[in-house]
């Protein structure tokens, strides 16, 4: 009974420790897999919008095409980090 209790206490700790280590171990294979995973998906709808990044360039296009401007203004660049 003592042994069993001890194992029950130790095993979850070992498993958690091994798991955490595995999660941050950067092997060659893991590098290639993660690098592929950390790329934007082709199917993301917002990426199909023809965004401009210069307000004046967009104004020029709006004037030429007689269209209004839509401005997505964020803290941090909306096509970037936020």
């Amino acid at each position: 009974m003592k042994v069993a209790t001890g194992l029950m206490l130790v095993l979850p700790g070992l498993m958690a420790g091994a798991s955490a280590e595995d999660l941050t171990e950067l092997t060659e294979q893991r590098f290639r897999k993660l690098h592929a995973e950390l790329q934007p998906g082709d199917g993301e709808l917002w990426r199909s919008i023809p965004w401009q990044t210069s307000l004046l360039a967009a104004q020029s296009m709006a004037a030429e095409q007689k269209k209004p401007l839509f401005i997505w203004a964020m803290d941090g660049h909306p096509l970037g980090c936020t």
Partner: peptide, 18 residues
């Protein structure tokens, strides 16, 4: 998305600049 592709000129900015 369809509206922005056809009826407006969409521009994305970090307003901290502008």
């Amino acid at each position: 998305v369809q509206f922005l592709k056809t009826k407006a000129i969409p521009v994305a900015i970090d307003q901290a600049y502008q």
